[in-house]
Computed example of a mutant assay.
Amino acid sequence: MRPRTTRRADKSLRRQELIEATIDSLAKRGFDATTTAVVADGAGLSRGIVNFHFESKEKLLVETLRYLSDEYRTHWRSAVNAAGPDPAARLWALAAADFDRKVCTQRKLAAWGAFWGEAKSRPTYRELCSPNDVEYQNTVADLVRQLVRPGQDYRLLARGLDCMLNGLWHHLMISPREFKREEAWAVARMHLATVFPDHFTDAGPIVPDGRPDGLEGAG
C-alpha cells in the first residue's frame, strides 16, 4: 500500500491537471464547448476521473474560476508586500503585477473572458470572486489616498485606476495581435505618471532625491 501522503499528492496533481486542461479548453473553445469529455481528453485522463474529482462540469468550472481568482490575488498581494512600505512603490508593484507573465497570458485572459461572459447569469461566479475584488479595490483606494494632492477625491481616482487596468486586460483579450502585454504595461505606467506626477515617472516611483528608482516591473 502506498503512503497516504503519496495518494493525496496524486489526487492534488490530478485535480490540477484537470483545472489546467479546463483553462486550455476555455481559451481554445469557449464556455459552451468546454465539456468534461473535452477536459479529460485534454488532460490525457479517463473521462470518469473528472466526475470522481469534481462530480460535474459546473463544479469543475467553479473550481477553475476559484483557482484563477486565488492565483491572481496571491500574485498581486505578494508583489505589493515585496515592494516595502512606500505607497508609491506599492501601487506601482500592484499595477505591474497585472501584466506579469504569471497571470497575464493569452490563455488565462481568454479563460477569464469566458467566465466574465457568464457572470451575469451565474451569480455563483460573482459571489466567488467578489471578496477578492473588494480586497483589491480597497487596497488600490488606500494606496491612492496616500498619494493624492489636497482637494483630490481619492475614491474617484482609485475607481478610475481600477477601471483603466481592467480595460487594458479586456483590450488584451479582444485584440491579442494588435495589442501586446508590453504596450499595456507602458499605458499603465504613463497613466500613473500623469495622474500622480509627484510620485511617478513612466520609469518608476520617484525616490526622495527626486529620481525614479527604475522599478519598471511587469516581468
Rank of each mutant, 00 (worst) to 15 (best):
R2Y: 10
T5M: 09
T6Y: 09
K11H: 12
K11F: 08
R14T: 12
S25I: 00
S25L: 03
A27W: 00
K28R: 15
F31S: 02
T34L: 00
D41M: 12
G42Y: 01
L45W: 09
E58P: 00
L60Q: 02
L60M: 10
E63A: 12
T74Q: 13
S78F: 02
A83G: 04
A83I: 03
G84W: 07
D86V: 09
D86H: 10
P87H: 10
A88D: 07
A88L: 03
W92V: 00
A93Q: 07
A93M: 04
A95G: 04
A95P: 01
A97H: 06
A97W: 03
D100N: 15
V103R: 07
T105F: 02
Q106V: 00
A110K: 09
A111F: 06
W112K: 05
A114P: 00
F115A: 09
E118T: 05
Y125N: 06
Y125L: 13
R126T: 15
C129L: 12
N132D: 14
D133E: 14
V134H: 13
N138M: 12
N138E: 15
T139H: 04
V140T: 07
D142K: 14
R145L: 11
Q146P: 08
V148D: 05
G151L: 04
Q152T: 12
Y154G: 00
A158D: 04
R159M: 12
L161P: 02
M164S: 12
M164W: 08
S175A: 15
R177C: 05
F179E: 06
F179M: 11
K180W: 08
K180P: 00
E182N: 09
A186N: 13
A188N: 10
R189F: 02
L192T: 03
L192F: 07
T194K: 04
V195H: 00
V195Q: 09
F196H: 03
H199Y: 06
T201P: 00
G204H: 02
V207E: 14
P208L: 10
G210L: 08
P212F: 12
D213Q: 06
G214D: 07
